[in-house]
Design a protein around this nucleic acid. Structure first.
Length: 524
RNA sequence: GGUCCCAUCGUCUAGCGGUUAGGACAUCGGAUUCUCAUUCCGGUAACACGGGUUCGAUUCCCGUUGGGACUGCCA
Protein backbone atom coordinates (compact mmCIF):
# COMPACT_ATOMS: atom_id res chain seq x y z
CA UNK A 1 0.00 0.00 0.00
CA UNK A 2 1.21 3.51 -0.79
CA UNK A 3 -0.12 6.96 0.01
CA UNK A 4 -3.53 7.48 -1.48
CA UNK A 5 -4.01 10.24 -4.02
CA UNK A 6 -6.11 13.31 -3.33
CA UNK A 7 -9.53 13.57 -4.95
CA UNK A 8 -8.36 16.32 -7.28
CA UNK A 9 -5.38 14.36 -8.41
CA UNK A 10 -7.49 11.26 -8.96
CA UNK A 11 -9.77 13.24 -11.23
CA UNK A 12 -6.79 14.51 -13.20
CA UNK A 13 -5.20 11.10 -13.43
CA UNK A 14 -8.41 9.47 -14.61
CA UNK A 15 -9.39 12.30 -16.91
CA UNK A 16 -12.48 13.10 -14.89
CA UNK A 17 -14.00 12.74 -11.46
CA UNK A 18 -15.48 9.32 -10.66
CA UNK A 19 -19.22 9.17 -11.02
CA UNK A 20 -19.97 6.66 -8.29
CA UNK A 21 -18.78 5.60 -4.89
CA UNK A 22 -18.42 1.91 -4.22
CA UNK A 23 -21.52 1.99 -2.06
CA UNK A 24 -23.52 3.57 -4.83
CA UNK A 25 -22.42 0.85 -7.22
CA UNK A 26 -23.38 -1.83 -4.72
CA UNK A 27 -26.83 -0.31 -4.50
CA UNK A 28 -27.15 0.15 -8.23
CA UNK A 29 -26.23 -3.48 -8.90
CA UNK A 30 -27.56 -5.35 -5.88
CA UNK A 31 -27.09 -9.02 -5.19
CA UNK A 32 -29.58 -10.97 -7.23
CA UNK A 33 -32.57 -12.49 -5.61
CA UNK A 34 -32.48 -15.97 -7.06
CA UNK A 35 -33.44 -19.41 -5.80
CA UNK A 36 -30.80 -21.51 -4.11
CA UNK A 37 -28.36 -23.02 -6.60
CA UNK A 38 -29.28 -20.77 -9.51
CA UNK A 39 -26.19 -20.00 -11.55
CA UNK A 40 -25.52 -16.70 -13.26
CA UNK A 41 -23.21 -17.14 -16.22
CA UNK A 42 -22.08 -15.06 -19.08
CA UNK A 43 -20.59 -15.38 -22.52
CA UNK A 44 -18.04 -12.58 -22.90
CA UNK A 45 -16.42 -12.57 -26.33
CA UNK A 46 -14.39 -9.80 -27.77
CA UNK A 47 -15.95 -8.86 -31.08
CA UNK A 48 -13.38 -9.85 -33.69
CA UNK A 49 -15.86 -10.66 -36.43
CA UNK A 50 -15.08 -14.32 -36.03
CA UNK A 51 -16.66 -16.93 -33.81
CA UNK A 52 -14.69 -20.11 -33.36
CA UNK A 53 -15.54 -23.54 -32.03
CA UNK A 54 -13.97 -22.67 -28.70
CA UNK A 55 -16.48 -19.86 -28.36
CA UNK A 56 -19.32 -22.22 -29.13
CA UNK A 57 -17.99 -24.78 -26.66
CA UNK A 58 -17.78 -22.08 -24.04
CA UNK A 59 -21.22 -20.55 -24.43
CA UNK A 60 -22.80 -23.98 -24.58
CA UNK A 61 -21.45 -24.58 -21.07
CA UNK A 62 -22.50 -21.12 -19.90
CA UNK A 63 -25.99 -21.48 -21.25
CA UNK A 64 -26.43 -25.05 -20.08
CA UNK A 65 -25.40 -24.22 -16.53
CA UNK A 66 -27.85 -21.34 -16.35
CA UNK A 67 -30.63 -23.29 -18.06
CA UNK A 68 -30.44 -26.35 -15.83
CA UNK A 69 -30.23 -24.35 -12.61
CA UNK A 70 -32.97 -21.87 -13.47
CA UNK A 71 -30.34 -19.18 -13.46
CA UNK A 72 -29.45 -16.39 -15.84
CA UNK A 73 -27.26 -16.34 -18.92
CA UNK A 74 -25.88 -13.03 -20.13
CA UNK A 75 -24.05 -11.82 -23.19
CA UNK A 76 -21.35 -9.26 -22.50
CA UNK A 77 -19.38 -7.67 -25.29
CA UNK A 78 -15.74 -7.18 -24.39
CA UNK A 79 -14.97 -4.36 -26.78
CA UNK A 80 -12.14 -2.76 -24.90
CA UNK A 81 -9.51 -3.37 -27.52
CA UNK A 82 -10.11 -0.28 -29.60
CA UNK A 83 -7.20 -1.10 -31.89
CA UNK A 84 -8.77 -4.30 -33.05
CA UNK A 85 -12.36 -3.27 -33.24
CA UNK A 86 -14.22 -4.45 -36.30
CA UNK A 87 -17.51 -3.15 -37.59
CA UNK A 88 -20.48 -5.48 -37.55
CA UNK A 89 -18.53 -7.90 -35.40
CA UNK A 90 -21.16 -7.85 -32.70
CA UNK A 91 -23.72 -9.08 -35.19
CA UNK A 92 -21.53 -12.09 -35.84
CA UNK A 93 -21.67 -12.89 -32.14
CA UNK A 94 -25.40 -12.41 -31.87
CA UNK A 95 -26.07 -14.46 -34.99
CA UNK A 96 -23.89 -17.28 -33.71
CA UNK A 97 -25.94 -17.49 -30.53
CA UNK A 98 -29.24 -17.45 -32.34
CA UNK A 99 -28.09 -19.94 -34.98
CA UNK A 100 -27.43 -22.41 -32.21
CA UNK A 101 -30.68 -21.70 -30.43
CA UNK A 102 -29.16 -19.87 -27.49
CA UNK A 103 -31.12 -17.10 -25.81
CA UNK A 104 -29.53 -14.63 -23.45
CA UNK A 105 -31.24 -12.54 -20.86
CA UNK A 106 -29.56 -9.17 -20.50
CA UNK A 107 -31.81 -7.60 -17.89
CA UNK A 108 -31.51 -3.86 -17.99
CA UNK A 109 -30.69 -3.34 -14.35
CA UNK A 110 -27.25 -4.90 -14.60
CA UNK A 111 -26.28 -3.32 -17.90
CA UNK A 112 -24.93 -1.85 -20.02
CA UNK A 113 -23.41 -4.96 -21.52
CA UNK A 114 -20.87 -3.37 -23.77
CA UNK A 115 -17.68 -2.79 -21.83
CA UNK A 116 -17.01 0.33 -23.84
CA UNK A 117 -20.12 1.78 -22.20
CA UNK A 118 -19.11 0.91 -18.67
CA UNK A 119 -16.28 3.35 -18.28
CA UNK A 120 -17.98 5.12 -15.36
CA UNK A 121 -18.03 1.91 -13.42
CA UNK A 122 -14.40 1.03 -14.04
CA UNK A 123 -13.25 4.55 -13.30
CA UNK A 124 -15.21 4.65 -10.08
CA UNK A 125 -13.58 1.47 -8.87
CA UNK A 126 -10.19 2.68 -10.05
CA UNK A 127 -10.70 5.93 -8.16
CA UNK A 128 -11.37 3.97 -5.00
CA UNK A 129 -8.15 2.03 -5.48
CA UNK A 130 -6.18 5.20 -6.18
CA UNK A 131 -7.57 6.78 -3.07
CA UNK A 132 -6.65 3.80 -0.95
CA UNK A 133 -3.15 3.57 -2.35
CA UNK A 134 -3.91 0.20 -3.95
CA UNK A 135 -3.28 1.51 -7.43
CA UNK A 136 -1.12 4.22 -8.93
CA UNK A 137 -0.58 6.16 -12.11
CA UNK A 138 2.33 4.94 -14.18
CA UNK A 139 4.08 7.03 -16.80
CA UNK A 140 6.35 4.41 -18.29
CA UNK A 141 6.48 4.73 -22.06
CA UNK A 142 6.25 1.82 -24.48
CA UNK A 143 9.95 2.14 -25.24
CA UNK A 144 10.87 2.09 -21.59
CA UNK A 145 8.83 -1.01 -21.04
CA UNK A 146 10.34 -2.70 -24.08
CA UNK A 147 13.77 -2.01 -22.63
CA UNK A 148 12.77 -3.45 -19.30
CA UNK A 149 11.40 -6.56 -20.93
CA UNK A 150 14.54 -7.02 -22.96
CA UNK A 151 16.81 -6.68 -19.95
CA UNK A 152 14.68 -9.11 -18.00
CA UNK A 153 14.81 -11.56 -20.86
CA UNK A 154 18.60 -11.31 -21.01
CA UNK A 155 18.87 -11.76 -17.26
CA UNK A 156 16.56 -14.77 -17.42
CA UNK A 157 14.10 -13.40 -14.94
CA UNK A 158 10.35 -12.97 -15.14
CA UNK A 159 9.22 -10.20 -17.45
CA UNK A 160 6.78 -7.52 -16.41
CA UNK A 161 6.45 -4.46 -14.27
CA UNK A 162 7.04 -5.53 -10.67
CA UNK A 163 9.24 -4.73 -7.71
CA UNK A 164 12.26 -2.67 -8.68
CA UNK A 165 11.04 -2.42 -12.27
CA UNK A 166 7.88 -0.63 -11.18
CA UNK A 167 9.52 2.76 -11.37
CA UNK A 168 6.46 4.88 -10.63
CA UNK A 169 5.04 2.72 -7.87
CA UNK A 170 5.79 5.22 -5.13
CA UNK A 171 5.96 8.43 -7.14
CA UNK A 172 5.15 11.53 -5.12
CA UNK A 173 2.12 13.67 -5.84
CA UNK A 174 4.43 16.46 -6.96
CA UNK A 175 6.09 14.24 -9.56
CA UNK A 176 2.76 12.91 -10.72
CA UNK A 177 1.59 16.45 -11.22
CA UNK A 178 4.72 17.24 -13.19
CA UNK A 179 4.04 14.39 -15.61
CA UNK A 180 0.44 15.43 -15.90
CA UNK A 181 1.42 19.02 -16.57
CA UNK A 182 3.68 17.68 -19.24
CA UNK A 183 0.59 16.38 -21.01
CA UNK A 184 1.16 12.70 -20.32
CA UNK A 185 -1.70 10.25 -19.79
CA UNK A 186 -0.81 7.53 -17.29
CA UNK A 187 -1.88 3.95 -17.14
CA UNK A 188 -3.39 2.97 -13.83
CA UNK A 189 -1.53 0.05 -12.35
CA UNK A 190 -2.30 -2.25 -9.49
CA UNK A 191 -0.06 -1.67 -6.48
CA UNK A 192 0.64 -5.34 -6.02
CA UNK A 193 1.53 -6.62 -2.59
CA UNK A 194 1.72 -10.25 -3.62
CA UNK A 195 4.75 -12.36 -2.82
CA UNK A 196 5.58 -15.00 -5.43
CA UNK A 197 7.23 -17.09 -2.74
CA UNK A 198 3.86 -17.54 -1.15
CA UNK A 199 1.12 -19.57 -2.72
CA UNK A 200 -2.51 -18.89 -3.26
CA UNK A 201 -5.03 -21.72 -3.09
CA UNK A 202 -8.31 -22.02 -4.88
CA UNK A 203 -10.75 -24.52 -6.29
CA UNK A 204 -11.42 -24.82 -9.97
CA UNK A 205 -14.59 -26.70 -10.85
CA UNK A 206 -12.84 -28.67 -13.55
CA UNK A 207 -9.41 -29.21 -12.08
CA UNK A 208 -10.11 -29.30 -8.39
CA UNK A 209 -7.81 -27.79 -5.78
CA UNK A 210 -5.03 -25.74 -7.28
CA UNK A 211 -2.28 -23.56 -5.94
CA UNK A 212 -0.36 -20.85 -7.75
CA UNK A 213 2.37 -18.43 -6.72
CA UNK A 214 0.99 -15.07 -5.64
CA UNK A 215 1.06 -12.34 -8.24
CA UNK A 216 3.56 -9.53 -7.78
CA UNK A 217 3.09 -7.78 -11.11
CA UNK A 218 1.70 -4.29 -11.11
CA UNK A 219 -0.62 -5.13 -13.95
CA UNK A 220 -2.41 -2.46 -15.89
CA UNK A 221 -5.94 -1.75 -14.72
CA UNK A 222 -6.79 1.17 -16.97
CA UNK A 223 -5.05 1.65 -20.31
CA UNK A 224 -3.60 5.03 -21.13
CA UNK A 225 -4.46 4.82 -24.80
CA UNK A 226 -8.23 4.91 -24.41
CA UNK A 227 -8.73 4.83 -20.64
CA UNK A 228 -10.61 1.56 -20.98
CA UNK A 229 -9.96 -1.33 -18.60
CA UNK A 230 -7.79 -4.33 -19.30
CA UNK A 231 -9.35 -7.77 -19.29
CA UNK A 232 -8.33 -8.35 -15.69
CA UNK A 233 -9.88 -5.21 -14.32
CA UNK A 234 -13.03 -5.59 -16.40
CA UNK A 235 -13.38 -9.16 -15.17
CA UNK A 236 -13.16 -7.92 -11.60
CA UNK A 237 -15.69 -5.12 -11.98
CA UNK A 238 -18.12 -6.72 -14.38
CA UNK A 239 -18.34 -10.19 -12.95
CA UNK A 240 -18.83 -8.65 -9.54
CA UNK A 241 -21.44 -6.05 -10.43
CA UNK A 242 -23.24 -8.33 -12.86
CA UNK A 243 -23.31 -10.78 -9.97
CA UNK A 244 -21.91 -13.63 -12.02
CA UNK A 245 -21.67 -16.80 -9.99
CA UNK A 246 -19.77 -19.02 -12.43
CA UNK A 247 -17.05 -17.81 -14.72
CA UNK A 248 -16.49 -20.19 -17.63
CA UNK A 249 -13.40 -19.41 -19.69
CA UNK A 250 -10.63 -21.07 -21.63
CA UNK A 251 -7.57 -22.49 -19.96
CA UNK A 252 -5.48 -19.61 -21.28
CA UNK A 253 -6.81 -17.66 -18.30
CA UNK A 254 -5.76 -20.25 -15.81
CA UNK A 255 -2.44 -18.62 -15.04
CA UNK A 256 -4.07 -15.32 -14.16
CA UNK A 257 -6.31 -16.65 -11.45
CA UNK A 258 -3.87 -15.72 -8.68
CA UNK A 259 -4.07 -12.14 -9.86
CA UNK A 260 -7.85 -12.24 -10.03
CA UNK A 261 -8.18 -13.69 -6.56
CA UNK A 262 -5.81 -11.03 -5.29
CA UNK A 263 -8.04 -8.33 -6.74
CA UNK A 264 -11.30 -9.78 -5.44
CA UNK A 265 -9.79 -10.10 -1.96
CA UNK A 266 -8.46 -6.57 -2.12
CA UNK A 267 -11.97 -5.34 -2.83
CA UNK A 268 -13.48 -7.62 -0.22
CA UNK A 269 -15.77 -9.06 -2.87
CA UNK A 270 -16.96 -12.61 -3.14
CA UNK A 271 -14.96 -14.66 -5.59
CA UNK A 272 -16.91 -16.24 -8.45
CA UNK A 273 -16.58 -19.94 -9.12
CA UNK A 274 -14.13 -20.67 -11.89
CA UNK A 275 -14.48 -23.22 -14.64
CA UNK A 276 -11.46 -23.34 -16.91
CA UNK A 277 -12.09 -25.38 -20.02
CA UNK A 278 -9.56 -27.23 -22.12
CA UNK A 279 -8.77 -26.59 -25.76
CA UNK A 280 -10.31 -28.08 -28.86
CA UNK A 281 -7.45 -29.56 -30.85
CA UNK A 282 -6.55 -31.19 -34.10
CA UNK A 283 -3.52 -32.99 -35.47
CA UNK A 284 -1.28 -30.60 -37.34
CA UNK A 285 -0.83 -31.88 -40.87
CA UNK A 286 2.74 -30.67 -41.10
CA UNK A 287 4.14 -31.67 -37.74
CA UNK A 288 1.82 -34.57 -36.96
CA UNK A 289 1.40 -33.19 -33.48
CA UNK A 290 -1.72 -32.31 -31.60
CA UNK A 291 -2.39 -28.60 -31.30
CA UNK A 292 -5.12 -26.14 -30.53
CA UNK A 293 -7.45 -25.36 -33.43
CA UNK A 294 -6.24 -22.34 -35.25
CA UNK A 295 -8.12 -19.50 -36.81
CA UNK A 296 -5.66 -19.21 -39.64
CA UNK A 297 -4.99 -22.84 -40.46
CA UNK A 298 -8.30 -24.53 -39.81
CA UNK A 299 -11.37 -23.38 -41.71
CA UNK A 300 -13.52 -25.74 -39.67
CA UNK A 301 -12.63 -23.78 -36.56
CA UNK A 302 -14.95 -21.05 -37.80
CA UNK A 303 -18.55 -21.48 -36.76
CA UNK A 304 -19.60 -19.92 -40.06
CA UNK A 305 -18.01 -22.89 -41.82
CA UNK A 306 -20.62 -25.24 -40.35
CA UNK A 307 -23.45 -22.95 -41.33
CA UNK A 308 -22.17 -22.52 -44.85
CA UNK A 309 -21.77 -26.24 -45.35
CA UNK A 310 -25.20 -26.81 -43.93
CA UNK A 311 -24.41 -28.90 -40.89
CA UNK A 312 -27.45 -29.22 -38.65
CA UNK A 313 -26.59 -26.92 -35.77
CA UNK A 314 -28.31 -29.35 -33.42
CA UNK A 315 -25.82 -32.05 -34.36
CA UNK A 316 -22.89 -29.76 -33.68
CA UNK A 317 -24.41 -29.07 -30.28
CA UNK A 318 -24.83 -32.80 -29.67
CA UNK A 319 -21.27 -33.50 -30.67
CA UNK A 320 -19.73 -30.78 -28.55
CA UNK A 321 -22.25 -31.51 -25.83
CA UNK A 322 -20.96 -35.03 -25.53
CA UNK A 323 -17.45 -33.72 -25.18
CA UNK A 324 -18.27 -31.17 -22.50
CA UNK A 325 -20.71 -33.45 -20.73
CA UNK A 326 -19.26 -36.94 -20.96
CA UNK A 327 -21.98 -39.52 -20.58
CA UNK A 328 -24.54 -37.58 -22.57
CA UNK A 329 -24.23 -39.85 -25.58
CA UNK A 330 -24.70 -42.94 -23.49
CA UNK A 331 -27.74 -41.49 -21.76
CA UNK A 332 -29.24 -40.61 -25.11
CA UNK A 333 -28.55 -44.04 -26.59
CA UNK A 334 -30.24 -45.58 -23.60
CA UNK A 335 -33.23 -43.34 -24.16
CA UNK A 336 -32.84 -41.56 -20.84
CA UNK A 337 -32.78 -38.12 -22.45
CA UNK A 338 -34.03 -36.78 -25.77
CA UNK A 339 -31.45 -34.10 -26.45
CA UNK A 340 -28.46 -32.37 -24.93
CA UNK A 341 -30.58 -29.81 -23.13
CA UNK A 342 -32.30 -32.56 -21.15
CA UNK A 343 -29.03 -33.93 -19.83
CA UNK A 344 -27.58 -32.58 -16.62
CA UNK A 345 -24.12 -31.14 -17.04
CA UNK A 346 -21.98 -31.71 -13.98
CA UNK A 347 -19.28 -29.02 -13.89
CA UNK A 348 -16.81 -31.44 -12.33
CA UNK A 349 -17.12 -33.71 -15.35
CA UNK A 350 -16.11 -31.11 -17.91
CA UNK A 351 -12.86 -32.48 -19.33
CA UNK A 352 -9.61 -30.90 -18.27
CA UNK A 353 -7.53 -32.06 -21.19
CA UNK A 354 -7.73 -31.02 -24.81
CA UNK A 355 -10.03 -32.93 -27.15
CA UNK A 356 -9.27 -33.76 -30.73
CA UNK A 357 -12.05 -32.54 -32.98
CA UNK A 358 -13.40 -35.61 -34.74
CA UNK A 359 -15.20 -34.87 -37.99
CA UNK A 360 -16.19 -38.52 -38.42
CA UNK A 361 -18.02 -38.49 -35.14
CA UNK A 362 -19.69 -35.21 -36.00
CA UNK A 363 -20.86 -36.85 -39.22
CA UNK A 364 -22.37 -39.65 -37.21
CA UNK A 365 -24.26 -37.21 -34.99
CA UNK A 366 -25.44 -35.35 -38.07
CA UNK A 367 -26.69 -38.52 -39.78
CA UNK A 368 -28.44 -39.62 -36.64
CA UNK A 369 -30.02 -36.22 -36.22
CA UNK A 370 -31.29 -35.93 -39.77
CA UNK A 371 -32.68 -39.43 -39.58
CA UNK A 372 -34.93 -38.38 -36.71
CA UNK A 373 -36.38 -35.48 -38.65
CA UNK A 374 -39.87 -35.68 -40.17
CA UNK A 375 -39.66 -35.18 -43.93
CA UNK A 376 -41.29 -31.78 -43.69
CA UNK A 377 -38.56 -30.61 -41.31
CA UNK A 378 -35.83 -32.05 -43.50
CA UNK A 379 -37.26 -30.23 -46.50
CA UNK A 380 -37.59 -26.98 -44.60
CA UNK A 381 -33.97 -27.10 -43.46
CA UNK A 382 -32.70 -27.93 -46.93
CA UNK A 383 -34.77 -25.16 -48.52
CA UNK A 384 -33.69 -22.60 -45.94
CA UNK A 385 -30.06 -23.57 -46.35
CA UNK A 386 -30.21 -23.42 -50.16
CA UNK A 387 -31.79 -20.00 -50.11
CA UNK A 388 -29.27 -18.57 -47.68
CA UNK A 389 -26.04 -20.34 -48.60
CA UNK A 390 -26.66 -22.46 -51.69
CA UNK A 391 -25.48 -21.90 -55.25
CA UNK A 392 -27.78 -21.34 -58.22
CA UNK A 393 -28.20 -25.07 -58.83
CA UNK A 394 -29.18 -25.63 -55.21
CA UNK A 395 -31.75 -22.87 -55.42
CA UNK A 396 -33.28 -24.47 -58.51
CA UNK A 397 -33.39 -27.81 -56.76
CA UNK A 398 -35.50 -26.42 -53.95
CA UNK A 399 -37.79 -24.36 -56.14
CA UNK A 400 -40.35 -27.17 -56.50
CA UNK A 401 -41.00 -28.09 -52.89
CA UNK A 402 -43.50 -30.93 -53.53
CA UNK A 403 -41.00 -32.62 -55.85
CA UNK A 404 -38.15 -32.07 -53.40
CA UNK A 405 -40.36 -33.53 -50.71
CA UNK A 406 -41.03 -36.69 -52.70
CA UNK A 407 -37.30 -37.05 -53.44
CA UNK A 408 -36.37 -36.73 -49.79
CA UNK A 409 -39.19 -39.03 -48.69
CA UNK A 410 -37.60 -42.09 -50.25
CA UNK A 411 -37.03 -44.84 -47.69
CA UNK A 412 -38.21 -42.73 -44.80
CA UNK A 413 -41.45 -44.51 -44.05
CA UNK A 414 -40.05 -47.05 -41.62
CA UNK A 415 -38.69 -45.14 -38.61
CA UNK A 416 -36.40 -48.05 -37.72
CA UNK A 417 -34.84 -48.19 -41.14
CA UNK A 418 -34.38 -44.65 -42.26
CA UNK A 419 -31.48 -44.16 -44.62
CA UNK A 420 -28.58 -42.39 -42.99
CA UNK A 421 -26.75 -41.02 -45.95
CA UNK A 422 -27.63 -37.39 -45.39
CA UNK A 423 -25.02 -35.50 -43.39
CA UNK A 424 -25.43 -31.84 -44.24
CA UNK A 425 -28.09 -29.88 -46.11
CA UNK A 426 -25.60 -29.20 -48.84
CA UNK A 427 -24.50 -32.79 -49.18
CA UNK A 428 -28.15 -33.89 -49.14
CA UNK A 429 -28.85 -31.92 -52.27
CA UNK A 430 -25.82 -33.23 -54.08
CA UNK A 431 -26.64 -36.76 -52.94
CA UNK A 432 -29.96 -36.63 -54.78
CA UNK A 433 -28.91 -34.39 -57.67
CA UNK A 434 -29.81 -36.93 -60.36
CA UNK A 435 -33.48 -36.31 -59.70
CA UNK A 436 -33.16 -33.04 -61.59
CA UNK A 437 -32.61 -33.22 -65.33
CA UNK A 438 -30.30 -30.22 -65.38
CA UNK A 439 -27.98 -31.95 -62.93
CA UNK A 440 -28.37 -35.48 -64.24
CA UNK A 441 -25.31 -36.90 -65.95
CA UNK A 442 -26.07 -39.91 -68.09
CA UNK A 443 -23.46 -42.57 -67.45
CA UNK A 444 -21.83 -43.35 -70.83
CA UNK A 445 -19.01 -45.42 -69.37
CA UNK A 446 -21.14 -48.21 -68.02
CA UNK A 447 -21.37 -51.29 -70.23
CA UNK A 448 -25.09 -51.63 -70.51
CA UNK A 449 -26.91 -54.74 -71.54
CA UNK A 450 -29.11 -52.97 -74.05
CA UNK A 451 -31.30 -56.02 -74.63
CA UNK A 452 -32.28 -55.87 -71.03
CA UNK A 453 -33.15 -52.21 -71.27
CA UNK A 454 -35.19 -52.78 -74.44
CA UNK A 455 -37.11 -55.66 -72.88
CA UNK A 456 -37.75 -53.59 -69.79
CA UNK A 457 -39.14 -50.72 -71.79
CA UNK A 458 -41.45 -53.07 -73.66
CA UNK A 459 -43.32 -54.07 -70.51
CA UNK A 460 -42.79 -51.02 -68.28
CA UNK A 461 -45.83 -49.38 -66.78
CA UNK A 462 -45.34 -46.47 -64.42
CA UNK A 463 -48.51 -47.44 -62.58
CA UNK A 464 -47.30 -50.88 -61.56
CA UNK A 465 -47.08 -51.50 -57.86
CA UNK A 466 -43.81 -52.69 -56.44
CA UNK A 467 -44.58 -56.39 -56.73
CA UNK A 468 -45.66 -56.28 -60.35
CA UNK A 469 -42.69 -54.07 -61.13
CA UNK A 470 -40.33 -56.62 -59.59
CA UNK A 471 -42.07 -59.52 -61.30
CA UNK A 472 -41.47 -57.83 -64.63
CA UNK A 473 -37.80 -57.39 -63.79
CA UNK A 474 -37.57 -61.08 -63.01
CA UNK A 475 -39.31 -61.88 -66.29
CA UNK A 476 -36.91 -59.67 -68.24
CA UNK A 477 -34.02 -61.39 -66.50
CA UNK A 478 -35.25 -64.83 -67.49
CA UNK A 479 -35.85 -63.80 -71.05
CA UNK A 480 -32.35 -62.33 -71.39
CA UNK A 481 -30.66 -65.09 -69.45
CA UNK A 482 -29.28 -62.86 -66.68
CA UNK A 483 -29.91 -62.46 -62.98
CA UNK A 484 -32.61 -60.05 -61.78
CA UNK A 485 -29.89 -58.08 -60.00
CA UNK A 486 -28.24 -57.37 -63.30
CA UNK A 487 -31.45 -56.01 -64.75
CA UNK A 488 -31.83 -53.80 -61.71
CA UNK A 489 -28.28 -52.54 -62.01
CA UNK A 490 -28.67 -51.69 -65.70
CA UNK A 491 -31.77 -49.74 -64.89
CA UNK A 492 -30.19 -48.09 -61.88
CA UNK A 493 -27.27 -46.77 -63.86
CA UNK A 494 -29.50 -45.66 -66.69
CA UNK A 495 -31.84 -43.87 -64.29
CA UNK A 496 -29.30 -42.22 -62.05
CA UNK A 497 -25.88 -42.52 -63.62
CA UNK A 498 -24.76 -44.21 -60.40
CA UNK A 499 -24.23 -47.74 -59.20
CA UNK A 500 -25.35 -46.96 -55.66
CA UNK A 501 -28.77 -45.54 -54.99
CA UNK A 502 -31.72 -45.99 -52.67
CA UNK A 503 -34.51 -48.39 -53.52
CA UNK A 504 -34.82 -48.46 -57.33
CA UNK A 505 -38.59 -48.74 -57.42
CA UNK A 506 -38.98 -45.65 -55.24
CA UNK A 507 -36.48 -43.76 -57.32
CA UNK A 508 -38.37 -44.57 -60.50
CA UNK A 509 -41.70 -43.67 -58.97
CA UNK A 510 -40.40 -40.25 -58.02
CA UNK A 511 -38.76 -39.77 -61.40
CA UNK A 512 -42.07 -40.57 -63.09
CA UNK A 513 -42.91 -42.60 -66.19
CA UNK A 514 -41.89 -40.01 -68.73
CA UNK A 515 -38.45 -39.43 -67.28
CA UNK A 516 -37.87 -43.14 -66.89
CA UNK A 517 -38.53 -43.79 -70.55
CA UNK A 518 -36.54 -40.76 -71.57
CA UNK A 519 -33.48 -41.85 -69.62
CA UNK A 520 -33.61 -45.41 -70.92
CA UNK A 521 -33.90 -44.09 -74.44
CA UNK A 522 -30.87 -41.88 -73.93
CA UNK A 523 -28.86 -45.06 -73.55
CA UNK A 524 -30.44 -47.05 -76.37
C1' G B 1 13.94 -20.13 -19.35
C1' G B 2 9.79 -19.42 -15.54
C1' U B 3 4.66 -20.71 -13.89
C1' C B 4 0.62 -23.93 -14.42
C1' C B 5 -2.47 -27.84 -16.49
C1' C B 6 -3.15 -32.70 -18.68
C1' A B 7 -2.07 -38.26 -19.60
C1' U B 8 -7.21 -45.42 -20.35
C1' C B 9 -8.37 -48.54 -27.44
C1' G B 10 -6.83 -44.50 -33.67
C1' U B 11 -10.77 -40.73 -31.41
C1' C B 12 -14.35 -39.14 -27.23
C1' U B 13 -14.60 -41.51 -22.74
C1' A B 14 -16.57 -45.08 -18.11
C1' G B 15 -13.71 -46.50 -14.03
C1' C B 16 -13.26 -43.41 -8.13
C1' G B 17 -7.69 -50.26 -4.48
C1' G B 18 -9.62 -56.37 -6.05
C1' U B 19 -13.42 -55.67 -13.15
C1' U B 20 -12.85 -61.14 -18.39
C1' A B 21 -10.78 -52.73 -17.99
C1' G B 22 -17.21 -51.12 -20.12
C1' G B 23 -19.57 -47.90 -24.00
C1' A B 24 -19.68 -44.79 -28.45
C1' C B 25 -17.30 -43.19 -33.22
C1' A B 26 -13.89 -45.18 -36.67
C1' U B 27 -12.12 -49.83 -38.56
C1' C B 28 -12.53 -55.21 -39.98
C1' G B 29 -15.71 -59.63 -40.81
C1' G B 30 -20.78 -62.06 -41.24
C1' A B 31 -26.28 -61.91 -41.96
C1' U B 32 -30.53 -59.13 -44.28
C1' U B 33 -34.50 -63.20 -51.55
C1' C B 34 -31.72 -55.33 -56.59
C1' U B 35 -26.72 -52.01 -55.48
C1' C B 36 -25.66 -48.62 -51.66
C1' A B 37 -27.36 -47.05 -47.07
C1' U B 38 -30.08 -48.89 -42.91
C1' U B 39 -30.79 -52.81 -39.27
C1' C B 40 -28.79 -57.08 -36.63
C1' C B 41 -24.58 -60.21 -35.01
C1' G B 42 -19.40 -60.66 -34.19
C1' G B 43 -13.94 -59.27 -34.21
C1' U B 44 -9.24 -56.24 -33.73
C1' A B 45 -7.82 -52.39 -30.44
C1' A B 46 -5.96 -48.95 -24.39
C1' C B 47 -4.35 -48.21 -18.65
C1' A B 48 3.01 -43.62 -21.43
C1' C B 49 7.44 -45.21 -18.34
C1' G B 50 10.05 -45.91 -13.55
C1' G B 51 9.88 -45.94 -8.45
C1' G B 52 7.16 -46.15 -4.02
C1' U B 53 2.41 -46.98 -0.43
C1' U B 54 -0.48 -51.57 0.01
C1' C B 55 -1.95 -58.34 0.85
C1' G B 56 -3.26 -56.07 -3.90
C1' A B 57 -2.62 -50.76 -8.16
C1' U B 58 -5.54 -48.25 -14.25
C1' U B 59 -7.08 -46.11 -9.57
C1' C B 60 -3.12 -43.01 -4.12
C1' C B 61 2.12 -40.45 -3.78
C1' C B 62 6.91 -39.05 -6.17
C1' G B 63 9.90 -38.77 -10.43
C1' U B 64 10.68 -39.24 -15.86
C1' U B 65 8.78 -38.70 -20.61
C1' G B 66 5.20 -36.73 -23.79
C1' G B 67 1.43 -33.08 -24.98
C1' G B 68 -0.82 -28.32 -23.95
C1' A B 69 -1.61 -23.20 -21.96
C1' C B 70 0.32 -18.64 -20.13
C1' U B 71 4.61 -15.42 -19.76
C1' G B 72 1.24 -7.79 -23.94
C1' C B 73 -1.49 -0.85 -22.25
C1' C B 74 -5.03 -8.78 -26.47
C1' A B 75 -8.74 -10.91 -24.47
Amino acid sequence: MRNGLSKDLIARVLGGAPKYTLDELETKFPARNLPEGAMVTRFAPSPTGYMHLGNLYSFLIDYKLAQQSNGIFLLRIEDTDTKREIKEAVNVVIKALSDFGIKYNNDEQYGPYYQSQRKDIYHSVAAYLLEKGLAYPCFLTQEEMDDIREKQGLAGIATGIYGEFARDRDMSEEDIIKHLDNGETPTIRLYSMGDPNKRIYFKDFVRGSISLPENNEDIVLIKSTDRLPTYHFAHLCDDHFMRITHVVRGEEYFGTVALHIQMFRMMGWQLPNYIHTATLDKIDEETGKQRKMSKRKDPENNIAFFLQEGWPTESVVEYLGNILAPGYEEAKLKGQVRCFWDYELKPKKIPGSGSLFDMKKLEWWAKEYIATLPVSELVKNVVDWANEYGNEDNKKQVADVPYLTSVLSIERDNPKRIRKDFITWQQTLSEVSYFWDFLFNANKEYEYNKDVLREFLATYNANDDKDSWWNKIVAVAEKCGVKPGEVAMNLRVAMTGRTNTPDLYSVMQVLGGERVKERVNMIL
